[in-house]
Write a protein that binds this DNA or RNA. Structure first.
Lengths: 321, 321
DNA sequence: ACGACCGCATAAGCATTCGTGATGGAGAGT
DNA sequence: ACTCTCCATCACGAATGCTTATGCGGTCGT
């Protein structure tokens, strides 16, 4: 189970071709064939069907493991690299679409910033592998509850903001007049599935373990990241959408009704490479200012140096003040 | 970053000796020395101080990564091994101390069972690496909220039971007469730190992001797993303890007062090797019986075969019925 | 203070592994 | 039926990895 072998395996599986994979990896086709054979004899299982080249059931499982494994490996490399490398002068921030609200934008340095919009799941990866110096992720959680993030590597996470959630409805919708909505009332409704632009329905399903079986049927799937499009879709009756209240309130042609039960919030967290999941330096309440004085609970530094340095640390500090 | 090199690195770090590590690994001292040198030149960093042999700061970080990596590697091996191996006939269950209540015990098959008590963190590892066929973990969570478990490997988790929490107090304690306690009232109290026997205080601190700073000071640390000892300590005034209500109510010489705020429960989950975090087949309410019919939301099988087989699957089925 | 010892680093030699190039065989398309 | 594509296999050269042997720095004992 050499990482090398795993790397070629995932490549072969992705390209569904030995020779293509060989080209991409800079090997000969023969080497690739031997790699796969080595893996298969090592595990005692066929991993790929040839002609066509496709993973067997066992191969699929190996793909999951291999992906995570290689990711962690890259993360370790990047993490250790930070010890040797000169402190960065530019700042690359990876952010999921809804993690970019005024507060986070205001904390960005004026120059030398690269902002990279990524799907939600890829933000932790980007920070872990060093593609980004910091990350901003959003998601649903109970108030002052940290987000459930895949732990690809030890990352320090800090709560940045929490906002109420709101359901976006067509103005003509029977429930549009309400001042607050319960999720229970909406289980049977049609929802827009917009994993990138909106709030992920899977998270809703997970948090709201509905009575016996899954609700939240999806009507239309939108794969873009534009909130206005999402609102337009919702206004046109293609389904409901769930957005942070400040965002939902700003859309035209649709009504935003706050979600009052269950008590869930839209939460944004800052991710920094570093050891251990650090708890926020206080609750990240809606619009609440942190108690001054002890804002420095996030450990970002290679253990020993006193003050965190570099643009990423600076960004973190400004976000928390 | 060959896993081989990592393996020798962690061994050297653990034993604080090149030659000892060489002996344990079946290598010569020279080979070990070369392994470490290879790692250090590869990463461009010193990882160990010699004389005495101890990890550098960077080395410590590598240890964290390496541990997780090797664990995942073993987990992948074990997981893939399940495809080839003959279905098991015996059942090994890893369980944290408080995960063993009557309901789980009743679901165990009559014969061929090995029950292995482990500290909380090690249960997922044991299931992932195949040391155990199934796992039972407990912890604190919001009602019907899945536990936050380290994802060493894709494990399917199912809620098994949830019980209210109770604070164990000496009978003479001023608050002993109450019918319910709020956690806020107890932040400044002295607590027993009993990570194995009781409910872990770290989880409490994490869940209850207290106002500005950490409460829950620990008075005495108990490293055993016996609940009666814990109760005796609490009764003797060494500190408060938090236990599941059914357990807390059974102790002698102390009083158990239910925790009413925040709304937290003691939750037990079943862990099975398998893909993806599967949500429970319904809420695991206190004493609540599952709605019959669709109890099979846990996928445990190598994708394709119809019904899960083997003692572990049988155990899972009996737990959910 | 000196010497023996312990423990890690380095050097040279040898076996194994790994990747390349060439060749063989099985399907799919024309 | 032929050819083309694609993967498997074989044989060889290069490189890697482990071992034995030796060197060096520090520690402990007398």
């Amino acid at each position: 189970m050499d990482p090398h072998l795993l790397r070629t395996y995932v490549t072969v599986a992705r390209l569904a071709s030995f020779s293509e994979a060989a080209r991409e990896l800079g090997y000969t086709q023969s080497a690739v064939s031997q790699h796969i054979a080595a893996l298969e004899t090592d595990l005692g299982l066929p991993l790929l069907t040839r002609r066509p080249v496709a993973p067997t059931p066992a191969g699929h499982r190996l793909l999951e493991h291999a992906g995570a494994l290689l990711l962690r490996l890259d993360a370790a490399r990047a993490d250790l690299g930070r010890f040797a490398a000169a402190p960065r002068t530019t700042l690359t921030v990876a952010a999921s679409p809804l993690a970019l609200h005024p507060r986070t934008l205001a904390a960005l340095p004026a120059t030398g910033v690269t902002l990279r919009g990524l799907p939600r799941e890829q933000v932790p990866e980007a920070v872990a592998t060093g593609e980004a110096d910091a990350g901003l992720v959003d998601g649903i959680a109970a108030p002052s509850d940290p987000l459930r993030l895949p732990d690809v590597a030890p990352l320090a996470s800090t709560g940045v903001a929490e906002e109420p959630l709101a359901v976006v409805l067509p103005a003509s919708h029977p429930l549009a007049g309400r001042t607050g909505l319960r999720l229970d009332d909406l289980v049977d409704a049609r929802w827009l599935d917009a994993p990138a632009a909106g709030v992920p329905l899977e998270q809703l399903r997970a948090v709201h373990a509905g009575p016996a079986g899954r609700g939240f049927r999806t009507a239309l799937r939108y794969e873009g990241t534009d909130t206005r499009t999402l609102a337009a879709l919702s206004a046109a009756g293609h389904g409901l959408a769930l957005l942070p209240l400040p965002v939902a309130a700003g859309v035209h042609g649709a009504t935003a009704v706050p979600l009052v039960a269950p008590r869930l919030v839209h939460r944004t967290e800052l991710l920094l490479p570093g050891p251990g999941r650090t708890e926020p330096a206080g609750n990240a309440g809606p619009g609440r200012t942190e108690p001054a004085g002890n804002a420095g609970a996030v450990r970002t530094e290679p253990a020993g140096s006193g003050e965190p340095a570099g643009p990423a640390a600076e960004f973190a500090r400004r976000l928390q003040s």
